[in-house]
Design a protein around this nucleic acid. Sequence first.
DNA 1: AACTGGTTTAACTAAATAGTTAAATTAAAT
DNA 2: ATTTAATTTAACTATTTAGTTAAACCAGTT
Lengths: 205, 205
Amino acid sequence: MVKKKTNTEQRIVDAAKEVFILKGHDGARMQEIADTASINKALLHYYFRSKDKLFERVFHEVFSEAFSSIAEVIGRANTIEELIEYFVSYYVAMLKSKPYLPNFILHELNRNPFMVVDLIKDSGMDKSFLIQLLVKESNRKDIRDFNPVHIMVNILSLSIFPFVAAPIIKGFIFDGNKVEFDNFIDERTQHITSFINAAIFKNQS
Amino acid sequence: MVKKKTNTEQRIVDAAKEVFILKGHDGARMQEIADTASINKALLHYYFRSKDKLFERVFHEVFSEAFSSIAEVIGRANTIEELIEYFVSYYVAMLKSKPYLPNFILHELNRNPFMVVDLIKDSGMDKSFLIQLLVKESNRKDIRDFNPVHIMVNILSLSIFPFVAAPIIKGFIFDGNKVEFDNFIDERTQHITSFINAAIFKNQS
DNA sequence: AACTGGTTTAACTAAATAGTTAAATTAAAT
DNA sequence: ATTTAATTTAACTATTTAGTTAAACCAGTT
């Protein structure tokens, strides 16, 4: 055979991703991962020596789905308007296609906070650039006097939280109506940007 | 003896709460719960027949910590200003003393979405009252034209998300400095209310 | 044809873990 | 003093699960 390797290996990682996301690290079973990948447990351990090694691989892949492009997206911003627009539109669009990301990462954040924070620090996100931009922009005359750190946390909260709490919003607010919920998510980018802009800019009528 | 029961029973529930919150349902061990409560496993099963029964009890207690008073708090609001102020100040203060609540409930929300949503529906939170208030208020001339559902989700997001992502904010933004983080949380109520007010009210300079 | 490495089969080990059991102990209530 | 219920001790069962092993199989490669 030779070089089905890449194929099978990725099939295992994909299956593991599916199961780990659904059941969490502790709830996931190696047998279920093997079944999902349509292979046997022996081969699973042939590729990944242990559950932890496999989980680590999965986590790194999922993590980079969430953080790989964000540094670059943020780096393009020259004004706070651009920062808000780029950040929100990128994140909401990304989470719309990968809604499992926040819960998976937040769950691991509980199990292993330092590891996750270290990964974020290594992700290339330039904190000082961000702070610098926000501080500079907060001196503009047309902008209200808010603490830039709170503004940053607000942008994150408004973009990410609806996905974290999706089942509640869908179930409680929209009575389980998927169409209405999807519609709500579709409106979200536009709403957040105008909501934040209304908050931070003076004299907008 | 007679009626140390209440005592021991609550000690078990408290220990279980601690362990379940730290390790999650699947990561928690009955032995560790027994150790934490300073009793033995036999007694643990004497009080609670199974892990699931114990977890259910813990979850209901934790859940009502989060949702028991909120209906009443919201019910007192006559205007959107009051709604924002009451809701944010209540929630941020509560989460400051019980920062584990969101992650615990959100984790169970993944394992068991319908159960959690049903509990919320039964919690006495009056959705139609809320909608009614928000819709009525959104007709005010001094208020910008936003979809009330988004406003409600924004209030929730801004209040709750910082606690969900606390390790990231503390670790990444504040470089692990606990004092700065606590200070950030202390500013939060005030910031959120003025941020939201700035967003929804017209002509505020 | 012999070799190689991916793959299967199937039985196995070792450890962890939820839950059980039964007998002994303790201390309060009658 | 006897009874009763809470509690401990300690050994036990049954099950689940991660991980192993060894032999056989299969399909390209040399």
